[in-house]
Design a protein around this nucleic acid. Sequence first.
DNA 1: AATTCGGGGGA
DNA 2: TCCCCAGAATT
Length: 362
Amino acid sequence: MLDLTSLSVPLLQWWDEHKVDLPWRRGRDPYAIWIAEVMLQQTQISTVIPYYERWLAQFPTVEHLAAASLSEVLKQWEGLGYYSRARNLHAAAQTIVATYSGQLPQTAAELQKLKGIGPYTAGAIASIAFQQPVPIVDGNITRVLTRLADIPDDISQSQTQKGIWHLAGTLVPLVRPGDYNQALMELGQKICLPAMPRCAVCPAAALCQARANGTQLERPVRPRRPGLPHYHVAAGVIWRDDGRFLIAQRPLNGLLGGLWEFPGGKQEPGETLPQTLKREISEELGIVIKVAQPITMIKHAYTHFRITLHTFHAHYQSGQIQHLGVADHAWVTFADLARYPFAVTDQKIIAALVEQSRPKPL
DNA sequence: AATTCGGGGGA
DNA sequence: TCCCCAGAATT
């Protein structure tokens, strides 16, 4: 049987020499580490850094976050994706203030009771902020460990995941567990790369079973993903006679929950796009509109499907607005938009509107 | 156990 | 294009 128990020694030695300076490594504030770990869920470091800096400036403590409104919180998260993370951070902050006296719990088990904190984030906070010798497993560590132990099983299977977590648990050292966990992730990020692992400079190369077997590029084993469906979506900038236009807030749960948008929806078979828009506005808001000229067309890929978003000018005609498929609505001017959190596609619509309303050069 | 949640970066 | 990313919650 393979012996990886000595892994932490060369790994920590490598990390002490090569570790990257990151904003969340400059202090020991558990709150700041929590924010960083949640932002880093499924999100790359370079994407997170500017959001992290702005967040801590706006919400420097858990009390500041707990006291903020959901709109303020979503506005700070705007563009980062997986918006339930922001809603859960907000809710967990209020729990921490109300039932933990404003202090994060120190054990992984207690941390995991908070909204938005699962096995990874609980282990990360417990080991990095509180020096608890508990394991973590993320995408990087999954790749490193399936290579070190040359695990041939499909990592999407819960049985395989369980095995990887168990292996990770046997490797965590009692000294510097947080540094060790970060080092293992950074090894995956800098050395044990998905398509081109740099085995020649890897501090764990001598221990690596996949390297010995020549199977590095076949680890980890993932299932194939089917092709993504493609939808056409119509959205409207619906004008009222006083020069204001309509925006709507999406339901708090589900895709882009709580974000604002130009209302509309998916095209159904046999429909023209203007028909789609008129129908969706009727179904979601209960009003009748007249669709006018097209504004712009935007392509966007989500995790499980792709869309082409067609946006039109439109005019309010009749009916009283009801919240049939939206959480809220507002009649606004351009100057109002800065206060509302929008998804990236709708930010592009706004940019197109601004561009078209600017006087054209001759 | 499988699906649903964003958006960007890199090969 | 496709893969990948310091995953969690829901069904």
